[in-house]
């Protein structure tokens, strides 16, 4: 019982936080992921030991992470509200590809029309719950969508979860593409899988 309450509290805080962020940044255009699901998938995977974590500890932990999150929104010498200028994202992704990871949240069909060649993952925000294992903990994650709306919410959640994530200002469509940064279309040619070498 206790563990459910611990989790619920943490989750309620996150939902509240996301709602606030949505109000702050709300630009409500296409591609918005909508509110986070009320009963997220994957909670079965969480390991919560009742004996070790009581209610007050959980409250403290969540409070600490949320305050840390808010204080991270405006840091000297860094982009405000965990936003990154598309030009800087482009530069970093090309200069140090091993340190940066670009996530495009747009739909597959829109992605295929024009996308940044640097994209490391094209995934709908709603599918992230089942695919968190794909997001690297040791890289800076840039997140883009159509306008920045969905990406902003995703970045907020990722940062609470401990990821070093930034939203691309204006998203991929209204930011990256509008800034004239390079995009490509689907590769034209396909080939069958080649047989490998000598079996055994």
């Amino acid at each position: 019982m206790n563990n459910i309450r611990v989790y619920s509290l943490r989750f309620a805080t996150l939902v509240l936080l996301l709602s606030l962020l949505a109000l702050t940044w709300g630009c409500g255009l296409e591609g918005s992921a909508g509110p986070a699901p009320a009963n997220p998938q994957g909670t079965e995977g969480l390991v919560i030991k009742v004996s070790e974590v009581d209610q007050s500890t959980a409250d403290e932990i969540v409070y600490k992470h949320v305050t840390e999150y808010f204080s991270s929104l405006q840091r000297e010498g860094e982009p405000a509200f965990n936003l990154v200028d598309p030009g800087i994202a482009y530069e970093n992704l090309n200069k140090s590809p091993e340190q940066y990871f670009l996530v495009d949240l747009r739909s597959r069909s829109d992605f295929e029309v024009a996308f940044a060649a640097e994209t490391d993952l094209n995934i709908a925000a709603a599918a992230l719950a089942e695919n968190m294992d794909l997001l690297p903990k040791d890289k800076t994650i840039y997140v883009g969508c159509y306008t920045g709306q969905t990406a902003g919410q995703v970045v907020a959640a990722l940062r609470v979860a401990g990821y070093d994530a930034y939203s691309i200002r204006g998203g991929i469509t209204n930011g990256w593409i509008a800034a004239g940064l390079p995009v490509v279309g689907a590769p034209a040619n396909t080939s069958d899988s080649a047989a490998g070498g000598c079996g055994g």
Partner: peptide, 12 residues
């Protein structure tokens, strides 16, 4: 059946 891999875009 075989997997249909893509290839490099020759325009790029």
């Amino acid at each position: 059946n075989r997997v249909s891999f893509g290839g490099l875009n020759p325009e790029l």
